[in-house]
Simulated assay, not measured.
Amino acid sequence: MIGGTGLIGSKVVTKLGEHGHEAVAAAPSTGVDTLTGEGLADALDGADVLVDVSNSPSFDDEPAMEFFRTATTNLLEQSAKANVGHYVALSVVGTDRLLDSGYFRAKQAQEDMIAASGRPYSIVHATQFFEFVRSISDFSTVDGEVHLPPVLFQPMAADDVAAGVARTAAGAPLNAVREIAGPEQFRLDEMVRTALADRGDPRPVVADEQAPYFGVQVTERSLVPGDDAQLGAVTYAQWAAQQK
């Protein structure tokens, strides 16, 4: 489990363990570094599945591309040497629609490398997490106001993201993309307005059709999955109640 000590990775490790699978958390803090390759051979020795939920520490264009290209190259090489039978990577719903962003170009490069590798794989596209709504707000704040486009938005709980990744990892390789999402659709500005109010954050949220989403102009359905997405169970209200 690459990125196995983070928000999603730690939950995936737990969920796989609950279903009788032995999942090993791998991260720099455990001696595994995907950028240098340190510890990868030992971590993958005897593994049936490699799950990568790691993320670039920087969202800037060049560092993100360098991270995903280098890490994915090392993971593909070492997983091939270890004869790992299934490569699972977590990515983002709408990645191919957000390529004006250098970060999403880097995510697309990661996906393309995996798909072109010849290794059996599954890519899980998840919608944004409830846990990151504050980050969206902070990034979109201008002069004390949160400016967001009123487009469709279908966020999900981190627990449901982890469940979707664990379910995919325990199954046969798809050699394709699987989309997972929350059970409810909102307007992005409405979702953030509600979330900020629940947190007691006084910032006003402005519905602005020209406002970008993390620097990218989006359309009505840029951020939501197709009709065949697997939906999580946790609603926003249920998740918010758990945070109190």
Results as ranks from 00 to 15, higher is better:
V32I: 00
G37M: 01
R199Q: 15
F139W: 15
Y213S: 09
I136D: 05
E184Q: 11
A43F: 00
Y121D: 09
V13M: 10
G200P: 13
D96G: 13
D208E: 06
P57S: 05
S135P: 11
T30R: 05
D208S: 01
Q185C: 08
Y87R: 14
F130T: 11
D112I: 04
D159A: 13
F104G: 04
H125T: 07
V177F: 04
R167V: 05
V93I: 11
S10N: 12
L98K: 13
L231I: 11
N74Q: 00
Q154F: 08
V234H: 09
V124N: 13
L223M: 09
S135L: 15
P150E: 07
T5W: 00
A233R: 08
L35M: 08
A106D: 04
V24R: 15
T141V: 07
R187P: 10
V93G: 06
E111V: 06
A64N: 00
K244N: 14
P204C: 07
A166D: 07
V124P: 09
A25E: 02
V142W: 05
D189T: 09
A109M: 13
S117V: 13
R105Q: 15
Y236W: 09
S91A: 03
T168Q: 10
D160H: 01
S58H: 03
M191D: 12
Y121W: 12
I123Y: 05
K81D: 15
L7V: 14
V32E: 08
A80K: 10
D189R: 05
T95K: 10
D48T: 02
V151Q: 08
V51N: 01
D198A: 14
E22L: 13
S222I: 12
L75H: 07
Y121F: 13
V146G: 03
L223N: 04
T95I: 01
G3N: 05
H21R: 15
P120S: 03
T34F: 02
V88I: 08
E18W: 13
T219Y: 15
D48Y: 01
P63C: 01
I114Y: 00
F67D: 06
T219K: 15
D228Q: 07
V161M: 14
A197P: 14
Q230Y: 11
A43S: 00
Q154K: 03
R221V: 11
V93M: 02
G164T: 12
A71L: 02
L188T: 06
L231E: 15
T168C: 03
T235A: 01
V146W: 01
T141R: 07
G94I: 07
E111W: 01
G85D: 04
M1S: 06
V12A: 10
P150M: 05
G171W: 10
